[in-house]
Design a binder for these strands. Structure first.
Length: 950
RNA sequence: GGGCCUGUAGCUCAGGUGGCUAGAGCGCGCCCCUGAUAAGGGCGAGGUCGACUGUUCAAGUCAGUCCAGGCCCA
């Protein structure tokens, strides 16, 4: 006589230690420590030793402070590329790097020194800079690792490493040797007081009162091309009128710039002269200069004036200045004609370059004129201002003068006004050996994501001026150039020059500052003039040249070129371009096969995040509050190829989505308790039809997600996974499965069919989610019933293949299930109506009567045994309708003609909660239905109750 | 001012080559359940597809102009 079972103990409820509460901020760091101890990154690479290589090259951030959200976004995107490629079966090393040299660190160190910069040696100063960079590299590294990014963190690449500095210097020498490098003049900010060049970041705009003058330049009528002068002007006394606030630049004036599209008027004055000014400004100019304009004698487009080849006489020097075109000429003030001094202005310089006009800047380091008329020669520019105004007046060229208060660049150290002054700089000639042309051809071969990247970089490379690669600083890699002390020529013995590289490999670029030229060069190095005494160049390389060289230093052997670069949109001007040019000059091809760009980080209102605006977000703080997986979810929920907004409200919503995903996995784990795949899994042929169908659908999802990972469209992966988990699993499949999982005998084949499907689905989704939810996927994996051969970490697994999830589900069956889902939707609406009408509460209290015709009727009859489960109701009756859709209220839009909801017949089974007319038929178990009786019998037979057994 | 890019429900996304009463998830509202329980389920309300003007039998989808925003220049 068997003992009666406690009903509750025969129910298989989910059971798992996997916690519902994520507590990511505290749990994630523990996981990180475990990974670190296990050496996960290297184990992954080892396990892929024979896999094809996929090379990602990291763009180096600059270590001056905490990483901000944009940097976090950048690194997380990169990590998802790396993890998804790894799981797709590639060997994907990740060597993170930092861009260590450059002005911002010099600046910070200088501030720390409190103005005592000149009291320390260059070598000591560089030591302080290195220490500063190291400090932030360490803190940045902690922050990056916290985001769940796997990589070679213990030995990243640093542009200040000795080897790296050697590679940079070597790349420069290659350019130098191939003849790309030349020395030329370029205007830079210059502080007269400190006698030094200033970077753009070192000037501060402050109020300043400048003279404001109008000057007339007489049109030269007897020039060689005099015949081309327009008839209206011919033989007349014509002047171009300009306005400037820097009278001292007039001696360096080389051209008059017109806007190509503006209308210029020739206006006749009372004294019979003709003044050329922008038509729109002719009244305000006349007023400012105090002349009366009689009439407009002619109108010209700026473009025509240039084409005519007009030339103007300098007011006091023997010089003719051509009319040129420039689109920065504006109509907000002045005359619409801009006097152009290529040696003293950035715009002016570009225009000068375009027209081949000399970059003339006759000043010494203190700003004194080194040549010119005796009136101002030897004076500083600010002393010269009134002198030149007088000079203009005495030559009859001054039309008006006044004062103007405006914002003007000042030196951030001494706060004196600064000037633009052409100085000697080093350039890379983009025309040499068709560097520009070849670069453009190469850009066309690269894959761009988004596709507009190609146009963007192409137009920049096509338009850009020669690359100025020299800086007058200390913290960087020097230009390896020596001058002969005797004849002044540059030493061009490249074998000798490359000797410096081995010094750099040994001691870093510091060697340049601690050793003499004679020590750095091989013994007996001689100039062609016979001298053996040399002087070192003082300038260092532009840091963009350094970061442009990273692929050469980091990607050894067959790793070069990289498969992918991925950075923000600012890097078209920056790293994408510098990397391309350096690679073209040294190796003749692009350093990347594909370039991906992500968007900018914006706040909730769509404003760009910045420290100064105070709307920045720190990944570290987000991790402390929400967890890294939620930050990664933020990255994946949006299309990173456009700008990315961040707000508290979005994080709240993502936390909800996360909870749902987590709980659905938890439900699966709970129902897989005790499931041993090796023992309990059923074969494809034994799977119940619905289970097979859900596996098939999971397989379709796998195929889609893998295609999206291939295309780097991570947000589509996230949305598809999320929708599938929410709609297909949580709301449908898992809900429907509860009856079978809970009430069937533990090892009943139908129950194991459900578990088999759950097992495969969970495994597949988990692997698809792993590159996104790095920590949570690992946590789930720890609770997942693994089989022998499964790796320790989810991150060592491969993505699922669609086929491994595709049992035989023919098209007809798929269509059947799709129809059944449509019918379900239709019935659910009816159930809701019934609930609202208080006919039922729980759906299990319902009996559904359906009438249909044709194919739908056949379908319902064929699947009649499935219907109560799918609908989660106690009873379903199917009947034939008369074949015409009735107009009655019971008809809903859908395949079924009529649906009626009534209370289920019989009593509620105390075990499975379904209603049945058979409840009470057993004397042993009087509160139980016939299905449960059968289940109990099976449990008694197999001695396999839910409690105690395993 | 110039080059490039973005603009679909409160939020995040789908909507090849023009043809739909514009979809999804979340959120929101109402309801159910209490054997996924600081969970689970159902239903519902939300959009003049940035604006305007064209092309077309037909435009979120093509063209032009404009507006708002972003990156990089100036």
């Amino acid at each position: 006589m068997t003992k009666l079972l406690d009903l509750k103990s025969t129910i298989n409820l989910p059971r798992t230690d996997f916690p519902m509460k994520a507590q990511l901020p505290s749990r994630e760091p523990q996981q990180l420590a475990e990974w670190d101890q296990y050496g996960l990154y290297h184990r992954i690479l080892e396990s892929r030793a024979n896999s094809p290589l996929f090379v990602f090259h990291d763009g180096p951030p600059y270590p001056t402070g905490d990483i901000h959200l944009g940097t976090g976004l950048n690194k997380i995107c990169k990590d998802m590329v790396i993890k998804s490629k790894t799981m797709a079966g590639f060997r994907v090393p990740y060597i993170p790097g930092w861009d260590c040299h450059g002005l911002p660190i010099e600046t910070k160190v200088e501030k720390d020194l409190g103005g005592k910069k000149h009291s320390v040696s260059a070598a000591e100063f560089r030591r302080l800079c290195r220490a500063f960079a190291t400090k932030y590299i360490d803190s940045n590294r902690r922050d990056f690792k916290r985001l769940g990014i796997f990589g070679q963190w213990e030995s990243p690449y640093l542009t200040m490493d000795h080897d790296h500095e050697a590679v940079i210097a070597s790349a420069f020498l290659t350019f130098y040797e191939k003849g790309y490098v030349y020395k030329g003049l370029k205007p830079v900010y210059w502080c007269l007081h400190d006698r030094t060049a200033l970077a753009e970041a070192e000037v501060e705009y402050e109020n300043h009162t400048s003279p404001s003058i109008y000057v007339r330049f007489q049109l030269a009528q007897n020039a060689a091309n005099g015949e081309k002068i327009p008839a209206a002007l011919k033989g007349r006394n014509v002047y171009g009128v300009i306005w400037t606030t820097t009278p001292w630049t007039i001696p360096a004036s080389m051209a008059l710039a017109f806007h190509p599209d503006f209308q210029y008027a020739g206006v006749e004055t009372a004294s019979g002269e003709i003044y050329l000014v922008a038509d729109q400004l002719r009244r305000s100019v006349a007023e400012a200069c105090g002349y009366t304009e009689l009439k407009v004698v002619a109108i010209f487009k700026g473009r025509e004036l240039e084409a005519t080849g007009l030339r103007f006489r300098h007011p006091f020097l023997d010089r003719l200045e051509p009319a040129v075109l420039a689109d920065y000429v504006t109509l907000d003030q002045g005359t619409g004609i801009v006097h152009t001094a290529p040696g003293h202005g950035a715009d002016d310089f570009r225009t000068g370059q375009k027209y081949g006009i000399e970059t003339y800047a006759p000043l010494d380091d203190e700003g004194r004129f080194t040549e010119g008329l005796p009136e101002y020669k030897g004076k500083t520019v600010f002393e010269a201002n009134p002198i030149i105004i007088n000079l203009l007046q005495s030559r009859g060229a001054l039309l008006a003068q006044g004062k103007l208060q405006h914002s003007y660049p000042h030196c951030w150290r001494c706060h004196n006004p600064v000037i633009f002054r052409a100085t000697e700089q080093w350039f890379i000639d983009l025309q040499h050996d068709d560097l520009r042309k070849h670069s453009l051809e190469e850009i066309h071969k690269v894959k761009w994501l988004p596709a507009w990247g190609e146009d963007r970089l192409s137009s920049m490379v096509a338009e850009r001026p020669d690359w100025c690669i020299s800086r007058q600083r200390f913290w960087g890699v020097p230009l390896v150039v020596f001058y002969c002390e005797q004849c002044g020529q540059q030493l061009k013995d490249f074998r000798a020059l490359r000797n410096v590289i081995s010094w750099f490999e040994k001691e870093g670029a510091d060697a340049w500052f601690t050793h003499s030229a004679e020590e750095l060069l091989p013994p007996r190095t001689k100039c062609s003039c016979g001298s053996s005494r040399f002087r070192k160049e003082k300038d260092i390389l532009d840091v963009w040249f350094e970061s442009g060289s990273t692929s050469l230093a980091v990607l050894k052997g067959d790793m070069w070129p990289a498969d992918v670069y991925l950075e923000g949109p600012d890097q078209y001007r920056g790293w994408f371009q510098s990397s391309l040019l350096v690679a073209m000059g040294t190796r003749g091809r692009a350093p990347y096969r594909q370039v991906i760009t992500h968007g900018w980080t914006l706040d909730a209102d769509g404003r760009p995040m910045s420290k100064s605006a105070g709307n920045g977000e720190l990944p570290r703080e987000i991790c402390e509050k929400w967890g890294a997986d939620l930050l990664r979810l933020w990255v994946t929920s949006q299309d990173y190829q456009t700008d990315m907004r961040f707000s508290e409200a979005m994080m709240v919503q993502l936390a909800e989505s996360y909870r749902k995903i987590r709980n659905t996995f938890r439900f699966a784990l709970g129902n897989l308790a005790g499931f041993d795949p090796a023992r309990d899994m059923v074969s494809d042929a034994e799977l119940l039809e619905m289970d097979a169908w859900m596996l098939h659908r999971t397989g379709e999802l796998v195929a889609q997600c893998r295609a999206w990972y291939d295309a780097f469209e991570f947000h589509r992966v996230f949305h598809a996974l999320h929708d599938f988990i929410v709609v297909d699993l949580s709301a449908f499949y898992f809900d429907v499965l509860k009856d079978r999982l809970y009430t069937f005998a533990r090892r009943n084949k139908s129950r194991r069919s459900a578990q088999t499907a759950m097992y495969h689905i969970t495994s597949a989704l988990l692997r698809l989610a792993a590159p996104i939810l790095v920590f949570t996927a690992e946590e789930i994996w720890k609770h997942f019933p693994r089989v022998s051969g499964d790796p320790e970490s989810i991150h060592m697994t491969l993505f699922p293949a669609q086929l491994e999830l595709a049992p035989q589900v023919d098209d007809r069956k798929r269509e059947n299930w799709e129809s059944l889902m449509a019918i379900r939707e239709q019935v659910l609406k009816k159930l809701e109506e019934a609930r609202n009408a208080k006919v039922i509460n729980s759906a299990l209290e319902a009996k559904v009567e359906m009438r249909a015709h044709g194919k739908t009727l056949d379908l319902l009859k064929n699947y009649s045994s499935w219907l109560p489960q799918i609908l989660i109701v106690s009873q379903v009756r199917v009947g034939a309708s008369n074949g015409t859709a009735p107009a009655s209220a019971s008809a809903a839009s859908g395949p079924v003609d009529e649906i009626e909801i009534a209370r289920a017949d019989g009593k509620k089974c105390n075990r499975c909660w379904n209603y049945s007319v058979h409840v009470g038929e057993s004397s042993d178990y009087p509160t139980v239905c016939e299905r449960c009786l059968a289940a109990i019998a099976e449990i008694e037979r197999t001695q396999d109750s839910a409690v105690g057994s395993r």
